[in-house]
Write a protein that binds this DNA or RNA. Structure first.
Lengths: 341, 341
DNA sequence: TTGTACGCGTTATCAC
DNA sequence: GTGATAACGCGTACAA
């Protein structure tokens, strides 16, 4: 107990069991290739020494790490949490480990983290959205690391992706807003620079307006980071407009939650005086008051499918195919027809 | 372009620059130990080849990875997100990378992940809470991997920790509830098995009652996972009690949010008919209706300080000291005096 | 200041 | 079935 010896190696186990290191390695990796009796002795030795394989050495020798890396824009709110959890669960089931890091929506940071994860021997990478420099893909190719894009599906994209149509989903939601009778619509969007999901969501709204024969380019639009407080600030600014919008469509539920909070603070009742919509259908969407009309994204399904596809790519069973996840509008109470003027 | 060559190694760079591998290595790790002119050539070669050091090889040779591991109970909600983000930011500033994995509140899974992270060469580990088998610490000691506990501070704990007094904070909150005049108090706690924070929060409430000369062991108490829906279910069961509690203290904001949602569904008004409290002061606490009276935990501060301390331990500058973070009660609208019978 | 050479712990290719 | 042994890519004494 408490004896200060350092971590045992394959060699120590081999000596303890009276076999060669090769045999110990086989016992652990392909037990069927070693006879029962010796296996017993080896596993016994492994147990008594408390041996754990050195990962770095394994990677070096096997050129394979059973590790998948994921770089998400932020861990700071729940947007990616659910999908990533499902992604990880599925990976674990297949014997892979997930390494996560967050880029804080900074393309340069993302680039650096990609290099870090590759240097760490990640067998494959999960990336969010399509918007990034193409030389990053060259780098990944050179290092033979397959990558899969998630949270976004674009039919014309070359890279494989498992996601949904951000523009299509938002377009459908905008149609509902229009159908309710709204014409003075304002937008609180996330920062669109370097974020194809945010861009697509805005253009989805524009599309719906065009389809309805309305002008789309003069909608009040505020871009702001995905934070509750920012959503609140933006909402306050929009409410100061004249004429005041009758509906505020938000880039995600976090911004919408901020908008609702500010509405309450300002004494503006939702949806009687102004309607508010979100996107994602994360937990807070059903918690806020009034509950948010939003786009439901099946995050768990997306996470699972992304894991399956990426593993298939890593194991050479797939060249990388794209999967489109279906979303749907969830109707709750934050959207209603506008009050008559 | 697009030529399918594999990743360049130190050797390739050395050949390209016309120097030895040792010189290249020095250029990258201690640039001051190599003369300007050669350094130029080497860095030039590094650049043109697009060289990235192989991490596994670095770890093997240097027995050092500049990597810190963290195992949190869940990524599924925002409880740990903020603190962890700050933890990571601070680590990055010091040149360390964070590896996160989640144990789903399963002690066995946590144990396994600890071994995984150690095998991966983590220089130090961040663990949540004190409750775990002691042989895990033996394992860490043998592998010479310093570990730091966070999200919990217990004066009598042997292990270094950066956290707050869960019992003390909850005791203070309970005092407020008592001071408001409540006597029929019910508790919705997280699962206490293997979770010292959950245990401490419950005992904090008991302490407050004892201090007030009241019986503490007959409080209605429901243990349930930290999920909104579970909080809602538990709240419904408590409201069916006779006599009905006038205040429901929840183990965290997630459970409290569920309770509020259920109250609204049941047509029970908060705080007029029943008061509800939370814990953590995560974002939803200010979003729900009515806004939650809860315990504010300075998660970012905790994350930063944990990072500083753990790095100090890893670098041998500290044997591991404990830091207590101060919390305080945030008074919002979900707590009010009970209605007169 | 720079180069040589060994070791890190494992896997995999051979013989035996 | 099992045992030598050569990689794997890098850091670092030690020598020059």
């Amino acid at each position: 107990m408490g004896k200060t010896r350092s971590a045992p190696t394959l060699n120590d186990v081999a000596r303890e069991a009276g076999v060669s290191t090769a045999t110990v390695s086989r016992c652990l990796n392909s037990p069927e290739r070693v006879i029962e009796s010796t296996r017993q002795r080896v596993l016994q030795a492994v147990e008594s020494l408390g041996y754990t394989p050195n990962f770095a050495a394994q990677v070096m020798a096997a050129k394979r790490s059973f590790t998948i890396g994921a770089i998400i824009p932020t861990m700071d709110n729940a947007i990616f949490a659910r999908g990533l959890q499902a992604f990880q669960d599925q990976l674990r089931e297949a014997g892979y480990t997930l390494l996560v890091s967050s880029s804080a929506y900074d393309p340069e940071a993302e680039h650096e983290q990609i290099r870090t994860l590759v240097a760490r021997g990640a067998d494959g990478l999960l990336l969010i959205g399509h918007a990034r420099r193409t030389d990053i893909y060259d780098y990944l190719e050179r290092h033979q690391v397959p990558s899969l894009v998630a949270w976004s599906y674009e039919p014309e994209a070359v890279r494989p992706s498992v996601g949904f149509s951000n523009s299509g989903a938002m377009c459908e939601l905008a149609r509902r807003v229009l159908a309710a009778g709204h014409r003075r619509i304002a937008i609180i969007s996330g920062i669109t620079k370097g974020n194809d999901r945010a861009q697509a969501r805005v253009s989805g709204i524009h599309q719906a307006l065009l389809d309805a024969g309305l002008a789309a380019d003069e909608l009040p639009l505020i871009e702001t980071p995905y934070e509750i407080d920012k959503g609140a600030d933006a909402f306050a600014r929009l409410m100061a407009l004249d004429p005041r919008p009758t509906a505020v469509m938000c880039g995600n539920d976090v911004l919408a939650a901020g908008a609702l909070r500010e509405a309450q603070r300002l004494g503006i009742s939702v949806p009687e005086q102004v309607s508010v919509t979100g996107f994602d259908d994360i937990e807070i969407a059903g918690i806020v008051h009034p509950a948010l009309t939003t786009v439901h994204v099946p995050h768990r399904e997306m996470g699972r499918k992304a894991a399956c596809e990426l593993i298939a790519m890593v194991e050479g069973r797939s060249p990388g195919k794209s999967v489109c996840i279906n979303t749907h509008v969830v109707t709750r109470h934050s959207l209603a027809p506008p009050a008559e003027a």
